[in-house]
Amino acid sequence: MTTAPSAGMTRRSAAYLATHPRVRLALILSAPLTWLALVYVVALALLLVTALWTVDGFTGQISPTWTLDNLRTVVTGALYRTVTLRTVGVALLVTVIDVVIALPIAFYMAKVASPRAQRLLVIAVLMPLWASYLVKAYAWRSVLSQDGLLNWLVAPVGLQGPGYGLPATVITLSYLWLPYVILPIYAGLEKVPNSLLEASADLGAPPWRTLSSVVLPLALPAIIAGTIFSFSLSLGDYITVTIVGGTSQMLGNLVYTNVGAANNLPLAAAIALVPIVIIFGYLALVRRTGALDNL
């Protein structure tokens, strides 16, 4: 009987909640929203704030003194310009390579393969996507090493592999993000109705004409969705270039060095703003194509 009052209270609060969906919603949302807002939104906003602070030269502590120096360094410094151009160049090259490789595969999967083969191919593409990023980069380190598989393969024809460096970084990054590019393009091509392809053929268009005038325009948003992955993931990468890039540096390396060894978090935050600005610029550029709905 001692539980009676609390049971009555439980019933009363249940009745209250049943008739007040807004309160119910607030209760449900409070924990996840607090977490995401505090841990993520606030953290992102404060990254911008920290970029405007400075590090005390003597104590190594961050002091909240407002300054534009970090941003000025990043925008005008020759090193940062070189590395930014290199990083964007690598990201663009990786994206182009991935799209060129992904298009025929995605097309084969979506429009040529039998339904059974189609299912198997999706699994075959999906499984390595989930294999560890680090392991895949390490795998290419083995393949590209001085007496690794690649040099062994091309030695008989008198060639030599690229070794570690920027080309190796481009190869490895293209490899890493390829499944991310294939899958959205495949999904986009799947949605292109076969009847349209037949109509185009019936009207006398040769296959290449159907491809360029019907398939590509319809699949474009999906293709761009794929490029968002490869471009944005390459821009922020620093592990791959550490593993196979030799001494080359990308933006991520500069961020990492300044967080760790150089202990200049404000400068690191300012450098991190570069990929953020570029990615948001890219997203704004492609938003009108409807690519974001294909992510």
């Binding site: 606030v42 961050i62 922020g236 967080v259 991190a272 990929p275 953020i276």
Partner: peptide
């Protein structure tokens, strides 16, 4: 967002 953005944002949030 790329991992490095999430990473440095959280690093900064926790430490600073």
């Amino acid at each position: 967002l790329p991992g490095i953005v999430t990473g440095i944002a959280l690093n900064n949030f926790f430490r600073t």
